[in-house]
Design a protein around this nucleic acid. Structure first.
Lengths: 253, 253
DNA sequence: CGAAATAGCGTAGCTCATACGCAATTACGG
DNA sequence: CCGTAATTGCGTATGAGCTACGCTATTTCG
């Protein structure tokens, strides 16, 4: 029997309960929940061991009985913050399934904007993460893609969704800190600084008024943008499928 | 005359030189350069004001004469780390131009892996960033996309490239810290934990051996993956172009 | 009922960012 | 040529953060 890495075991809640000694008043799940609550309310930067402990009415150091380090806590948060993925309809095609899941993921990330700021410590290993992974693979199961390609498409999709959300989150934060540097003020600054000679294409876009919005961070606008970029990516996947469809069963790697 | 935000002015090196008083021994550019050198050599986490000051043979607090805060230093780094974008060939179509630029950006990010960990404080404002922006827009100038759509495509592309590189960088860091949890060991752990009943698609992929590599972080492999995902995205853009306008699908400039 | 195991937590050490104030240096006005 | 104003260099100090260590309190097993 192979040994399992300690962090993965913790993620799955696989530790034997202690039989002797003082009873724990908390669990790793409690700590994780409290940390998520803090992050939701005040951002990831507010998540300090002291802050989380205060939330639980415990002292800072007590948390270290449940969590090896702050990094480990972040890993736990990265799994616990996810909901169950949406169920795929039995009769859907791959594209509607992937779209459903991508929008569902966007929804999760909107409720936990700090998620995309978490450092990625490794490939997905927690139960919720793997469930999403499985569901995404299920949506692609009937395509002519081989297993390796399916994983590639899923990773590309996740990269895209995370990147999109990260950009959005950080722009929103920048907007909060510094509203003047957005929207029209930004466009005005660009006009002062962009030389039409050396950057003609950018100058043309600026002059066309693309940046003359009251704010660049506009929620429904960005949603439409997200959907459009997602569709472009999926168009590409579709084209790849079509090319692939002729010669089924090819196995790379 | 509109005023320009202070940080943008600094990015462009627009501050009047002081006429009286002790001569500065450094410039903001010197500080930025030293910070980049530290980040390249030891990662972004090693970039502390004290560390950068030591690199320059100055005291920590001296740096604050050139840089308002550490955040401002990071903003300066986000512009100074970029090279000039590659020149577009006069006879290329949009797709080869975009591909050239995307690979060029990948190259920059490979030499400065910390880049994608920088917090994004706002839309691009520095000279180098805008130059890349301009070049990307230039590559799309002859397509039937309107200005807003061009910006959308460019943003989507940047999101994708950054996200890809971020994933890669963080996995590499995780691999350094914790090599056992990658590759075959990861696959073995998955086999223990993934229930074929509740996650059949993932189980199938695991059993197919997709994760049975000596390491999941394999440079040429990830390059191919990047290129494949990029092509998928560009296929999508191409499909969008076709829908959008007739002809012009790949003309010279 | 002791011994062993385990939780709670106070203390303290280390690293950071950075506010503040003073001394050193330089240019300009007279 | 000197005084004054401006500006840099930097020591000190504050406060926040992570976490190693070790002591004490609590609980269970033999």
């Amino acid at each position: 029997m192979t040994e399992m890495p300690a962090d993965i075991a913790l993620l799955w809640g696989l530790r034997e309960a202690p039989r002797r000694g003082r009873r724990p008043t908390l669990t790793a799940a409690d700590v994780t929940r409290a940390a998520i609550a803090v992050a939701d309310a005040e951002g990831l930067a507010a998540v300090s061991m002291a802050r989380v402990a205060a939330e639980l009415g415990n002292s800072t150091m007590a948390l270290y009985r449940y969590v090896k380090s702050k990094d480990e806590l972040l890993t736990l948060m990265s799994d616990a913050a996810l909901d169950d993925p949406p169920e795929l309809p039995a009769d859907g095609d791959w594209r509607s399934g992937i779209t459903l899941l991508a929008l569902g993921m966007l929804d999760v990330l909107r409720r936990h904007p700090w998620y995309v700021q978490l450092p990625v410590s490794g490939p997905p290993a927690g139960p919720r993460n793997l469930q999403w992974f499985d569901r995404l693979l299920t949506a692609l199961a009937d395509t002519p893609l081989d297993e390796g390609e399916q994983v590639g498409v899923v990773m590309g999709l996740l990269t895209f969704v995370h990147g999109e959300m990260r950009l959005r989150t950080e722009l929103a934060a920048g907007y909060r800190d510094n509203p003047e540097s957005f929207g029209r003020a930004y466009a005005a600054a660009l006009r002062q600084v962009v030389d039409p000679r050396s950057m003609p294409a950018l100058r043309r876009v600026v002059d066309a008024g693309v940046f003359d919005l009251d704010t660049l961070y506009d929620e429904p606008d960005l949603d439409a943008e997200f959907k459009a970029t997602l569709d472009r990516y999926l168009d590409g996947v579709a084209a790849h499928l079509e090319r692939r469809g002729q010669s089924m069963g090819g196995n790379s790697r």
